[in-house]
Amino acid sequence: MATPAAWLEERGHASRWRSRMVRGLLIGIAALFLGVILLLPLVTVFVEAFDRGIGFYREALVDPDALAAMRLTLLVTALVVPLNTLFGIAAAYAIARFSFRGKSVLTTLIDLPFAVSPVISGLAYVLVFGASGWFGPWLEERDIEVIFALPGIVLVTLFVTFPYVARELLPLMQMLGTDEEEAAISLGAGGWTTFFKVTLPKIQWGVIYGVILCNARAMGEFGAVAVVSGHIRGLTTTMPLHVEILYNEFNQVAAFAVASVLSLLALVTLAIKTAIEWRTGHRGGH
């Protein structure tokens, strides 16, 4: 007959063994899932891209249309990310620091791009700025092209990526409070000094993190851009659009070659983000 102690010990063994089983099983499922759903397609991109050798791959990338698409994507990103960084900091600062009428409305509006499907936001811009839209005739008279041109692409990308910086900063600023700013003011600092010497250093990692997310989305945006770009090859196709065009033309290798560049950019972004997370984690920052 087992003593209570022995019985407990046996039970302990059993439960420990079971918990190890459960842990292994869960990790296995997660790994399998990630492999099939995430990793496999990514690997496929690179495999397909190099399907016919490095020569074909190079050729697909130096194609003028492909180069134009890359240039356009980088240009749009270079315009959108700084603008949204400024807007995002301003919006987060206003919401976290001041109380004003309509504050909750503004907070909700910031989230709007997350909630609205990108295709619909693209369509909305067409309805506003398109030839038969509200401002269409007015723009046409002055010979300003918005839709099916660079301004349209920049506008929809701005719209879609607006929340990233603001959303990243809002909780951070609310958590960090205003004590340091008040201390700076009581010590004689003015508004700008306080912002650049105290506020910005305090939230810098949040800003960088938001910029990275914003950047990734700006480069990869498809739906909204597809609606307003007009798919003019070499002129208004960004990289994601170019990939789609090539694929629809059964030019598999070229499509995957461009896609691989896009994926590479995404992976680099991800690597930077991880490095920053690691760094802030070790700094005891946010």
Binding site: D179, E180, A183, I185, S186, A189
Partner: peptide, 20 residues
Amino acid sequence: NPRDRGVGFVFQHYALFRNM
């Protein structure tokens, strides 16, 4: 303006500039 009042203020949670 608070910056010109010439007071020293000490907060409950120190409020030191964390990056300096």
